[in-house]
């Protein structure tokens, strides 16, 4: 029997802008099994990135519970949540979000600086992560010396280097050409199948979503 890794229970999210209250998510409830590859789709403003941010622990719900591996992360303090993120979540962003002044190696090493690993252990892990994404020979390159697809692969290496249970990807192919997008999706597929990572991906792209096992559609803050 498969284990539920993420449980979203009656989650709503509102943003306050001056005196206006804008509802972004309305009473969302669903579960994600460990090792699932879930795609969140929907038009712009439907709340899919907000939902992804809540699962990733970088935003807090207005109402409801987000239980991940048995912990209600909505109840964690900012400091505990930061530690939780560093141990449990790998991030992949649409625009890669690599640090321009750090090399590929240093970018991938960044999340490991939050662990107690020794320098040599960190080196081993970074080299392994970069070799998984096929960039073992580009470790000393700065982001500006890499193509968009290569940058996103470095970002994927950074997401897996801490061996997190969950990987959240926000439009990971949104800024890539067709071939690079295919490479990135293949990598995500491998992470899911070979490394058993639970992946939550927000995408507009139906072909990207087709890689996922489950697709959930959001519209105006509701699951449809």
């Amino acid at each position: 029997m498969e284990k539920i890794i993420i449980s979203i229970e009656n989650v709503s999210k509102e943003y306050k802008r001056d005196s206006l209250s804008i509802s972004v998510l309305n009473n969302i409830t669903f579960d994600v099994q460990e090792g699932d590859f879930l795609a969140l789709m929907g038009p712009s403003g439907s709340g899919k990135t907000t939902l992804l941010n809540l699962i990733a622990g970088i935003d807090q719900p207005t109402v409801g519970k987000i239980i991940i591996n048995g912990n209600d992360i909505a109840k964690l303090s900012a400091t505990s949540l930061a530690k939780w993120r560093s141990e449990n979540v790998g991030f992949i962003f649409q625009f890669y979000n690599l640090i321009p002044v750090l090399t590929a190696f240093e970018n991938v090493e960044l999340p490991l600086l939050l662990t107690k690993l020794s320098k040599s252990e960190r080196k081993k892990r970074v080299e392994l992560a970069l070799s998984i994404v096929g960039l073992g020979d580009r470790m000393d390159h700065y982001p500006k010396q890499l193509s968009g697809g290569q940058e996103q692969r470095v970002a994927i290496a950074r997401a897996v280097v801490t061996d997190p249970a969950i990987i959240v990807a926000d439009e990971p192919t949104g800024d890539l050409d067709k071939n690079s997008a295919a490479e990135v999706l293949t990598l995500l597929d491998r992470l899911n199948k070979e490394m058993k990572k639970t992946i939550i991906m927000v995408t507009h792209d139906p072909s990207a979503a087709s890689k996922a096992h489950i697709i959930k559609h959001l519209e105006k803050g509701d699951l449809v």
Binding site: I58, A82, K83, R85, S86, F91, I99, L110, P111, R158
Partner: peptide, 9 residues
């Protein structure tokens, strides 16, 4: 924002 998301305090 990226560093904070990764877990830096």
């Amino acid at each position: 924002g990226t560093m904070r998301a990764l877990g830096f305090l």
